[in-house]
Structure formats: structure tokens, C-alpha cells
Design a protein around this nucleic acid. Structure first.
Lengths: 180, 180
DNA sequence: TCTGCCATGTAAGTTGTTACATGATTAT
DNA sequence: ATAATCATGTAACAACTTACATGGCAGA
């Protein structure tokens, strides 16, 4: 359900094409709700059919035509009522944790995986910190809307920090048990 | 893919029935790879067909018969090679963050949601801490296998702590902007 | 010339969710 | 009586992934 609403949320401020949305979902919103371009196009067709969004084809010279979508009144109402609904914390699905739980390999192999993940989380964190410095260096003076976006960014930073701390601990714990 | 392997991992130590597995997935492994009983039964049929596991029907008195599955040699190999594969950090999918990002409701409504989630995370954390005290009160003396399970528990604790800290910050930030 | 970006989609397959179905036993 | 637990599944649907497909334009 949330993909539809994440799209609505993205279209509230500015009309976007499917392509634009796919870009957006590869960053910003995509950091906490990933979606491929195929999913997005499919969802857009469905939303247009339902009348939650309206599309308008824009002819372009030198580039393929694009179709800009914006949210209809019905769409806005739908978004609002979805926002008012309760939601549960989303269940975790994590390969790495399944692997570690299984513990069916040499600790060495796991250590390598841990280091790969460490690198990935460090990179993600660096991206978030850059965004923070660029757009949110002064949180006190942010307008309401921006405060919400800032909160999601803080969540990302907190999340990556948690992972990095845990990985450190994990590496340490595995080392202590395997001195060789 | 990981469901199959999570099941294999669960069956490595002891043979279990679909029902038993469903119970397990509602706790322990389920904390980082959720699956419903329908999914589990479907996956079990598939795994048996592929020859990764072998099922044996056990007649019971007073209870319906059950089918115990154990991992075959092929299954063990599959699990091992999957464990050696690289995996990426799993993408986040979180309703609450989409809602906050959209910021399309009264801050009040969001504050209510935040408190609901706070409660849920507190409960989860309490469960983890209980497990820690019960089974892992002395991490130094744990055998290798148990160390891995302990690590996943630590991850859970770290994760819930991260959420709780973020929620505190979020509530605070929303309050400061809306004194009324 | 080849890579990458712009822009849109289809098709097939896997995974996950929701609802339905059965039937015996045990506890309230 | 009624509800809950044990135990197993089917069926329909929704969501997601992977691969394939097209075609022009800009830059190295």
C-alpha cells in the first residue's frame, strides 16, 4: 500500500514524470521506501485509473515525450486518510542476520562479510551527513515541512550509526573467540 | 531466496515440522526474517521437491500427524554456498518514515503515531533484554554457535535502542516547533 | 564508436498477504 | 458450550524482482 502513498507524497509539491519519480526513489524517499522503475510505472497506471492522480503528456523536442502526473482531490483525500491510519513498525528482513544466526561458516568468512557491510554503511552515513550539512545545517530555523524531512534524515543517520556500532562489536566478539 | 535458507538454517540442528517452524518464525529467526505459516508450508513443499530437505510423516495419537523435515546433503551444500555469497544491506521499508516525509498531517497526529511506535519498540526491547538475561547473561563463556545467536540478539537490542532514541528526538523537535 | 542519459514500458517469475478450510483435543 | 491449541494445507490476489525491449541524443 505504501508505494502508492509514497508516490502521492512525492507528487504533492511538484508534478513529476515516472522517470523523475524513479530518480527520486533512488535517493530521498528511496532511502526508506525502495522501488524500481517498473514498480513505479505500474503503480502510476493504477493510480491514474483510480483517479488519484492525473497525467498530462508533455511534448519535448530532442527528447522523448514525458507524462507529468499530479495529485487529484481524491488523491489528496486518500493520502490524508492513509496518514491518519495507524501503522506497525515494519518487520526486519535481513540476509546478514540470517547468515549469522545460522552460523554455518567459518568465522573468517563472516568477518569478511561484516567488513563489506561496514563499508556500505559508512558510505551511506557519509551521504546522509553531506545532505545534513548542505540542507539542514541550521535545524532551528527550518520551516515545518522541512523539519519533517530533516527527521527522516536523522533517522537514517541514527540507523547507520546503530549498524556501524553493532558491526564493531561483532568483529570484536568474533576476534576474541578466534585468536588464530 | 533467504526464506529457503532461513528454513534450512532452522532445520540444521533439529528436524522440525511446518507448524514448529511457523512457531520459530514467530520469534527468534522471525525477529529478522518474518514469514507466515502459508509461506513456510509452500516453501517446504518446494524444498522437498528440490531435494534440499527430506520429510518424514510421524503418526501421533491424540494429535494430527506431523511431518518432520531434515536437511539433506544437497541442502547442506546449498546452505553453505549461500552463506559464502555476498549480500547487500537490506533496503528499509518503513510506513512511518514515509508518513513523516510526506508531512501531510497535523503534527499532533504524528505525535500520536510516534508514541504508539515508541510503545511497540519499548516492548520489543523488553523482550530482547529478557532473552539476554535468561540465556546470555555470561557472554564470555558462550560456545561458538551461541555467540552467533547472541550477536543477532545484540543487533535487535541496538536496533530498538536506535528507534527509541530517534523517537525521543522527533517528539522533542515537533514539540519545540508547536508550543500550542 | 560506444557509453550513458532520457523516457517508457511489457512479461515472466517469485514472494508475500489475506482469506478460507478441516478436524481433533484441551482448557474455561 | 465455546474458545484456544495442534497441525496442515489451498486459492486468490498483491507486491516485488529480473530480464527484455525500444529509440534518440550527447559526450568521450
Amino acid at each position: 500500500m505504501a508505494l502508492a502513498h509514497a508516490i502521492l507524497a512525492s507528487l504533492i509539491d511538484t508534478p513529476l514524470s515516472g522517470y523523475d519519480l524513479a530518480q527520486q526513489f533512488d535517493g530521498s524517499v528511496g532511502y526508506f521506501w525502495a522501488a524500481s522503475h517498473q514498480q513505479i510505472y505500474r503503480e502510476l497506471s493504477k493510480l491514474e485509473q483510480q483517479g488519484w492522480i492525473a497525467g498530462e503528456t508533455v511534448l519535448q523536442t530532442g527528447k522523448p515525450d514525458k507524462k507529468l502526473y499530479c495529485v487529484t482531490e481524491i488523491g489528496k483525500q486518500q493520502l490524508k486518510s492513509w496518514m491518519a491510519e495507524f501503522s506497525e513498525p515494519s518487520p526486519i528482513k535481513d540476509d546478514l542476520l540470517v547468515k549469522i544466526f545460522a552460523g554455518y561458516v567459518a568465522p573468517q568468512a563472516i568477518a569478511i562479510e561484516l567488513k563489506r557491510h561496514q563499508k556500505a554503511h559508512q558510505e551511506r552515513l557519509a551521504v546522509y551527513k553531506t545532505i545534513e550539512q548542505k540542507y539542514f545545517s541550521n535545524p532551528q530555523t527550518l520551516p515545518e515541512t522541512e523539519k519533517f524531512k530533516y527527521l527522516t534524515l536523522l533517522n537514517g543517520i541514527s540507523y547507520e550509526t546503530h549498524w556501524l556500532a553493532w558491526i564493531d562489536r561483532a568483529i570484536q566478539l568474533l576476534k576474541s573467540s578466534n585468536p588464530k
